[in-house]
Design a protein around this nucleic acid. Sequence first.
DNA 1: GTGGTCTAGACCACG
DNA 2: GTGGTCTAGACCACT
Lengths: 126, 126, 126, 126
Amino acid sequence: MVSLDYKSNKPIYEQIIEQMKFHVMKGYLKPGDAIPSVRKLALELNITPGTVSKAYQELERQQIIETIRGKGTFIAGEIRLIADEVKLQEMKKRLQTEIMELKMMGYDKKGIIELIKEIYEEMIVC
Amino acid sequence: MVSLDYKSNKPIYEQIIEQMKFHVMKGYLKPGDAIPSVRKLALELNITPGTVSKAYQELERQQIIETIRGKGTFIAGEIRLIADEVKLQEMKKRLQTEIMELKMMGYDKKGIIELIKEIYEEMIVC
Amino acid sequence: MVSLDYKSNKPIYEQIIEQMKFHVMKGYLKPGDAIPSVRKLALELNITPGTVSKAYQELERQQIIETIRGKGTFIAGEIRLIADEVKLQEMKKRLQTEIMELKMMGYDKKGIIELIKEIYEEMIVC
Amino acid sequence: MVSLDYKSNKPIYEQIIEQMKFHVMKGYLKPGDAIPSVRKLALELNITPGTVSKAYQELERQQIIETIRGKGTFIAGEIRLIADEVKLQEMKKRLQTEIMELKMMGYDKKGIIELIKEIYEEMIVC
DNA sequence: GTGGTCTAGACCACG
DNA sequence: GTGGTCTAGACCACT
């Protein structure tokens, strides 16, 4: 369900967050679905529970999941990331950096759009 | 020439790298142009020379700049980022994450492409 | 494991890099093996952690080692130095200089080849 | 006569030394031949006289050239680099490093010998 | 003047 | 515990 790249410089807990979001976006996880307990997932991924906990806390903060005391953790009912202006600006900045990098690698506007489309399609299909 | 966001979680040296690349891409810095000395830029940015040095060394590794011993640092002759497969894969992964976030914020394919175009245009113009 | 020549004009961090590569090549260090933590090696060698860190970062760039966040540093899975053309040219130039010196010291072609063989054998055996 | 690579990390003065030795080895410069004055070469190479002077001093120390006061600088009568044990050991160490690097790039013993031969031939011919 | 290296020490995020 | 970043200051070689 969740596969980690320990060598990546991206923190483990962020990888968990990302993949959970991915599963939700693709519909593998639907509102109300239960997700593994902190301990279970930690055991499964062979990491410390603290790391999983950190991921879950952030997911809860973003209202992707909900914890019901004594019951477990579930995908939230209505999922829609809060699109605050600050967050959007940060994203644009990151995208700007990536686009610059692509340009310097020789991609032109058309090539970049193509690449984005390609990534988009891949994401939806598989 | 370089402006830092000291609050950002992005390391200072990376910010310098990014902005130098930006200036090169936009043509503000052309091959052969001298860039500020390590000490000078450090003074200007109110950081230690070591941090500037780290940025410059990484830029040299990427063949964006060239240092001439005892003389200073200059924009390299031929600038073209090496597009090795590993690097490209990493970039695609990062872009995938951004696109996913956008989708979850409500953007559809068209909207995302629009956003990319917008960012691209802004980058070229200003 | 690593022994430094503090008098050498060769930077300490380069000496560390070189010796780590040596150990890998000789099989003393195998893929997956943990290498000493930055602090531990620094203590052992009586140098500052920053210097060790610099060496490790360069080794990671060359894909000799991999760092796992919060865990430590390990010998990479597949080790094969990337043989880009630029690097090879630099090496040839250095070798050319050495060979010239040897010639001027009186070595002829045969003698040089003998010397190279000798160095090669020593390297493998001990 | 002397062509410099300002971008190289090899000091200018060392490049001059090397090339002078090269010319001597190839016979372009013979014992008794005059070499340019410090100022002339400095002008020609567009560098400061101090750098040329440093190179000449080292060449004189190695008994490759001789300065005759009021006359100029000349290639020494009998040229044979002093092959002291220390120097040889340093060379072997450097060669060892290069060979290791080659091995890790995939060269085997035969390939390395081939490369050395190749470099040797190139050096003699051109 | 230039960049490169190193020290001694600090703080941080991650697991 | 781990590695990554940064500071403040030093020394060095090169030009």
